[in-house]
Design a protein around this nucleic acid. Structure first.
Length: 292
DNA sequence: CACTTGACCTGTCCGC
DNA sequence: TGCGGACAGGTCAAGT
């Protein structure tokens, strides 16, 4: 579920609420998703105050003044929702909220703060996880050692992007975009959207994509990620921001989940394929495989 | 080595 | 209305 724009939207929301909050209580019902020992939780989490909320790739990082960090991956259906005391953790929000009273049956971890507000980590499918570890060790995690650059970073250039893609010259380009070690944060939605923008068929081998189209892919990737962040991310089913509200990017999506509808560029009916094991949306006229 | 498949889970939707 | 199967935005491990 959450890809870079969704995790970034959650980060922004949490960053508005959490810094300075002191954790007074925690509860969890999914040891596999939050495997820390009770002793570590007591020593480094309870009584700690939050100093910052960061993001790297699709991972959320909540820094504590104990020099520990909560490392969180939402995977497919994870949610991080903050509720103030005055909201009673109750009725939810009328229109744009997907969730009501909290905790609910998908709540895995609840943090309570000194002002009695709460942070809920919900995860229907239980793929997500949360881990408490020394801040200094976070960057040593295998994932962070391998993960590629942030595509929206100011110093991320087209030349860098293209060079990294070409490390897997013989692979299908969608599979390469989804590879977190090539570029960070791209998932199924933005892979499909950016390939449509650059008029590239997702199964095209990287080495067969023209330099002009690779340049165009860099631009369309950054454009769709940026637009999605502005729209609060994509909500297909589960995703919500830190306030429990949906994102609206899918309203603007050109191909994702639009099979059977006309391509916004040429009017041809969009089709759904299976590429790299993932549901994949393409315009069969705009996005054509080069002849073998 | 590179790609595909299965595993991790629950919920929903679709066809019979 | 019930039931089986496919599918869902991510990643990792194992198999080919």
């Amino acid at each position: 579920m959450p890809e870079l724009p969704e995790v970034e939207t959650v980060r922004t929301g949490l960053a508005a609420f959490l810094p300075g909050k002191k954790i007074t209580h925690e509860s969890y019902d999914w040891p596999k998703g939050f495997p820390n020992s009770d002793a570590d939780v007591r020593q480094f989490l309870l009584g700690a105050s939050i100093t910052a909320v960061r993001r790297r790739a699709k991972v959320l990082l909540i820094d504590l003044d104990t020099a520990y960090t909560l490392v969180i991956h939402l995977k497919m259906t994870g949610q991080m929702v903050y509720r103030g005391d005055h909201e009673q953790f109750g009725a939810g929000h009328p229109n744009d909220s997907l969730i009501g009273r909290l905790p609910d049956k998908s709540t895995r971890v609840t943090l309570t703060f000194a002002d009695n507000s709460k942070l809920f980590f919900n995860d229907q499918r239980k793929f997500g996880w949360m881990r408490l570890m020394p801040t200094i060790e976070v960057e040593q995690l295998d994932f962070f050692q391998k993960v590629g650059p942030e595509p929206l970073a100011a110093d991320f250039t087209p030349a860098q992007f293209i060079a990294r893609l070409k490390r897997r010259a013989k692979s299908g380009i969608k599979a390469v975009l989804l590879d977190q070690t090539v570029v960070a944060g791209i998932g199924n939605i933005y892979a499909d959207e950016s390939l449509w923008g650059a008029k590239i068929h997702p199964e095209t081998k990287v080495q067969e994509v023209s330099p002009a189209k690779l340049q165009k892919l860099y631009e369309s990737l950054r454009d769709v990620l940026q637009l999605s962040i502005e729209k609060g991310g994509s909500t297909d089913r589960n995703y919500v921001n830190a306030e429990g509200k949906r994102g609206s990017y899918l309203t603007f999506a050109k191909v994702f989940r639009r099979e059977g509808k006309p391509c916004p560029r040429c009017g041809t009916t969009i089709i759904k394929l299976r590429v790299a094991g993932r549901g994949t949306h393409v315009c069969p006229r705009c996005q054509v495989l080069p002849k073998a």
